[in-house]
Simulated assay, not measured.
Amino acid sequence: MKKPDIFEFYRRLAELNPDPRTELDYGNDYQLLVAVVLSAQATDIGVNKATRALFRDVTTPAQMVALGEEGLKQHIKTIGLFNAKAKNVIALSEILVQDFGGQVPQDRDVLTTLPGVGRKTANVVMNTAYGAETFAVDTHIFRVGNRTGLAPGKTPLHVEKALEKNTPAPFRRDAHHWLILHGRYICKARRPECWRCPVADLCRFKPKTPAPA
């Protein structure tokens, strides 16, 4: 995709949604980190249901440690891989208490050293909590980047690097939110809804999916 088309791609998404936000519910940076860790291979809706009661009682890493692994499991047992996720959340909470004064580090490289925190999770936290111009490549962004020609790549890291290179300055902070939402609700995996896509004319995907009869 050429530079003018990339600019117009983002401009249209920004015009439709000037203030994009994550669909995960959270009250502070720590709860955001926990929610993103829990969201791996799970839906935001499912995570929000599981954390609704949890986050009323647990707002700090110390409170999570006090709750304990078995207590956490009771809250998140409806989420896939909840056993491993509970173990990771308790472990990362212990590290935050012991090494970071209960605060979430504002450094992507440090975040990725925490149990259960990969590059994608760290990018989400850095962007959403701290406004960093990071690009968290999930399955939606990977698909949109390749399908549209916006940021083609064989791996999530390749797509991330392409987005870093290609995304114009005015759109860098919110780009990953726009792309996730676009992939989630319009540029869907099995049947992209091209007939109502605001950037269909800029997209390289052929053939376009026709409107349902």
Rank of each mutant, 00 (worst) to 15 (best):
M1G: 12
K3S: 12
D5H: 14
D5Y: 12
I6Y: 06
F7M: 04
Y10D: 00
R12G: 05
R12T: 01
E15R: 13
L16N: 13
L16M: 14
P18V: 02
R21H: 14
D25Q: 12
D25S: 15
N28A: 06
D29I: 12
Q31L: 10
L32D: 05
L32H: 08
L32N: 08
L32R: 08
L33V: 04
L33H: 01
V34Y: 03
V34H: 03
A35S: 15
V36N: 05
V36F: 09
V37T: 13
L38T: 05
Q41K: 12
Q41S: 06
G46Q: 12
V47E: 04
V47L: 10
N48W: 11
N48E: 10
A50R: 07
T51A: 10
T51I: 14
R52S: 14
A53V: 13
A53P: 00
L54A: 08
L54E: 04
T59M: 09
T60A: 08
Q63W: 04
M64G: 08
L67V: 09
G68I: 11
E69T: 13
E69R: 15
E69Y: 11
G71D: 07
K73N: 03
K73G: 15
I76D: 00
I76P: 03
K77R: 15
N83T: 15
A84F: 08
K85L: 08
K87Q: 13
N88S: 14
N88A: 13
V89D: 00
L92S: 03
E94H: 07
L96Y: 09
L96F: 10
V97L: 01
D99H: 12
F100K: 08
G101H: 10
G101V: 11
G101L: 10
Q106I: 12
L111S: 05
L111P: 10
T112D: 02
L114D: 02
L114G: 04
R119E: 01
T121L: 02
N123Q: 05
V124E: 00
V125M: 09
M126T: 05
M126F: 08
N127C: 15
T128D: 13
A129M: 12
V137Q: 07
F142R: 02
R143T: 01
R143E: 06
G145P: 03
N146V: 09
R147H: 04
G149K: 07
A151T: 04
A151Y: 06
K154M: 02
T155A: 03
P156M: 04
H158Y: 01
V159Y: 06
K161F: 01
E164W: 02
R172T: 04
H176V: 06
W178S: 06
L179K: 04
I180K: 07
H182E: 01
Y185S: 13
K188C: 10
A189V: 14
R190T: 14
C194D: 02
P198C: 01
A200H: 02
A200Q: 12
A200G: 04
A200M: 00
K206T: 11
P207V: 08
P207Q: 00
K208W: 02
T209H: 00
T209C: 03
P210M: 11
P210C: 10
P210K: 07
A211E: 13
A211L: 07
A211R: 15
